[in-house]
């Protein structure tokens, strides 16, 4: 079983994680090609169903794509470490855990921003999407805070991954759940009340809402409550993940589960 798992998971690491992502033969298809078609896919469903206009989908997916890298990246970082058996040596170091893992999130967030810029570009180029120049700075801030919040969420997935058998599966589930729940492609009022309540507690939801308003011409002052809510949610998940991480780390030492496959 180990072998098959190594294969599939090895494949999965490469599947959506950021391994080897700097190589153009990987980066271009995965980090630029796939997002392009994701936006077109949902925008066309939107056109066919008459659900919303193109801008709704361009903004939703552009923000989601920048955030996705954070969730995958963070979860895979921890899962990958465990996989390559480097987690124990890492945890044996006195380095500050928070700094250790937050440090790793920076390239992920930077990469997410690049994908996001590209995604907005695609919307402008291929779909019916316009953006006023003065909207760009507040939009960038919103994308950034969404990416940070999602990276914190990814840290939580990674922390659970310390104990769960399959962090890769978990990361996938998390990303697709965010795609479903956070109003990326479905307006929240289409959900039953209980689903909307969950959406409001997840990262990304408020970020996307703010980004849509800004893209439609609102100023930062009009959406600052959404901005701060998104940041607050991020801080909450980050803190929760950190506590869980420390707990599992201590517990894992006792029960020797850090290196289990």
């Amino acid at each position: 079983m180990t072998h098959v798992r190594v294969f599939f998971i090895g494949g999965y690491i490469a599947y959506r994680a950021l391994f080897n992502w700097m190589h153009p033969s990987y980066y271009i298809p995965t980090m630029l090609g796939a997002p392009l078609f994701q936006i077109l896919f949902f925008a066309y469903i939107g056109r066919y169903t008459g659900l919303k206009d193109d801008a709704f989908f361009v903004v939703g997916n552009a923000v989601q794509l920048s955030a996705m890298a954070g969730v995958y990246g963070m979860a895979m970082t921890i899962g990958g470490e465990r996989w390559t058996q480097t987690l124990s040596p890492l945890l044996a170091t006195p380095a500050n855990r928070l700094a250790l893992f937050l440090g790793r999130s920076l390239p992920l967030i930077a990469n997410g921003m690049v994908t996001s810029v590209f995604a907005f570009g695609v919307g402008w180029w291929l779909l019916d999407f316009e953006l006023a120049a003065e909207s760009i700075p507040p939009l960038a801030a919103i994308v950034l805070v969404s990416a940070v919040a999602c990276t914190a969420f990814g840290l939580l997935v990674g922390a659970i991954g310390l104990r769960a058998r399959d962090v890769f599966f978990l990361a996938n589930l998390a990303v697709f759940s965010l795609l479903l729940m956070c109003g990326v492609n479905i307006p929240l009022d289409a959900f039953p009340g209980w689903m909307e309540a969950i959406s409001r507690a997840l990262p990304l939801t408020h970020g996307i809402e703010a980004a849509r308003e800004v893209a439609a011409g609102a100023g930062f002052a009009d959406v600052d409550h959404l901005f701060w809510t998104e940041l607050g949610i991020g801080v909450f998940y980050g803190a929760f993940a950190y506590a869980l991480f420390r707990f599992f780390e201590a517990d894992g030492r006792k029960r020797a589960t850090l290196e289990t496959m």
Binding site: Y26, P29, A34, Q38
Partner: peptide, 16 residues
Amino acid sequence: RNANAMSNLLEFPVWL
């Protein structure tokens, strides 16, 4: 040689 990258790329467009 980079099967995973191609798989990532071709999921959405073929759906579309």
